[in-house]
Design a protein around this nucleic acid. Structure first.
Lengths: 200, 200
DNA sequence: TGACAAACCTAATGGCATTAGGATATAATG
DNA sequence: CATTATATCCTAATGCCATTAGGTTTGTCA
């Protein structure tokens, strides 16, 4: 009510803006305070700590990411849904790379509330995999494979690990995701033939 | 020659020891100096900056990683070599997670000398893929797919993204790598039949 | 023995997150 | 309208960090 209409939400929004513009590595409470025209110490009226603020941002980013993926697979199923999901995943990482970095840099000794948020990120993946008639164990394996492929690809792509070749990266991604789609399709076929080599 | 027999190598070795013991996030020149019984400013006789030191460590880590992978695939070929490579990759990441983090955290605006080192990391992968009779474009695609899968898996596994299930992670990894092995095998078959659906 | 260079030091700078405690402006109440 | 209370914002300080300037010590070599 005094000076400015600042609150937790507007401070968080300003932090996101700053991170997306100037990058995560140059972000500091000094910069954030400067962008809001207040002193760094005054930020503590609205935030608990810089880690608390970043956790807040992570949670928002995950929610947004999941929402985009859910929209992408809406009304689709199986391979079509799988490719749409993978595409939305990569698009978010491209458009909000600093936020993606933040989300994917959850350190080992982590906040239990972030654990819950991380589980949220699995939901669109599971939704796609539920469209396949495979065992629950297979579902877990393919969920991990898909997450690995998507994260590994965008992470390496974004820090420039794939730039040393003219070969199209979109095609590489399509093929990479295609590996999983094809294998899922084939695994279903095996199950229909009452064969369960590793499908059980 | 005075006080201690310190040099660039011993300081780097001490830094690696500290990083592996206490973790990357708590590493500082203060801690490093303390472990060597000198003052922080004295470190600058042996290092250029903390970034220079970390780049040195990255280079050593990559060399060690590549060496392990080369040993692992020695005398093997095709699927056997592929699984051995993937296993060595994951083992290194498990045993030297802090170093792996360091290697994989090459920021976007990066040192050109690190670019060369990063390319070194592709060598064992290419060596394995050379054992398959596929086009050079396919080689590039599968190289990216394999790197993505390996990095994505170990990165998420190590920060605890896969712990919320009793399903065996070793098996998930074997299946994930198997996707690539199977697809490579099938792609070769297509080429032998003078068919080139996406193999060209 | 004397000169020299390398290793190490002290002291300082400017950046960072964070806290304690004080000032102030707005909103709520009498 | 005056008073009180509360939340916002401040100044000042602490202790961490990397880094630099410039001085001292120590070992080596002529």
């Amino acid at each position: 009510m005094p000076r400015q209409g600042l609150n937790k939400e507007s401070v968080t929004a300003a932090a996101i803006r700053l991170i997306e513009e100037k990058g995560l590595s140059s972000f500091s409470l000094n910069e954030l305070a400067k962008s809001l025209d207040i002193k760094p110490a005054s930020l503590y009226t609205h935030i608990q700590s810089i880690d608390g603020l970043l956790n807040e941002i992570k949670a928002l980013a995950v929610r947004q990411m999941v929402a985009r993926q859910m929209e992408a697979i809406e009304g689709k199923s199986r391979a079509e849904a799988l490719f749409a999901l993978a595409s939305a995943y990569r698009r978010f990482a491209k458009e909000h790379y600093e936020l993606y970095l933040l989300v994917m840099n959850i350190p080992k000794g982590n906040n239990p509330s972030l654990q819950l948020i991380a589980e949220e990120m699995v939901r669109p993946i599971l939704k796609v995999l539920e469209g396949y008639r495979i065992s629950t164990d297979s579902q877990m394996h393919y969920q991990r494979a898909l997450r690995s492929m998507m994260h590994g690809f965008v992470a390496q792509e974004e820090y420039g690990a794939f730039t040393h070749s003219p070969v199209d990266r979109d095609q590489s991604y399509a093929i990479s995701i295609g590996l999983i789609a094809e294998s899922l399709h084939r695994l279903e076929g095996e199950n229909n033939d009452e064969n369960n080599s590793h499908g059980k």
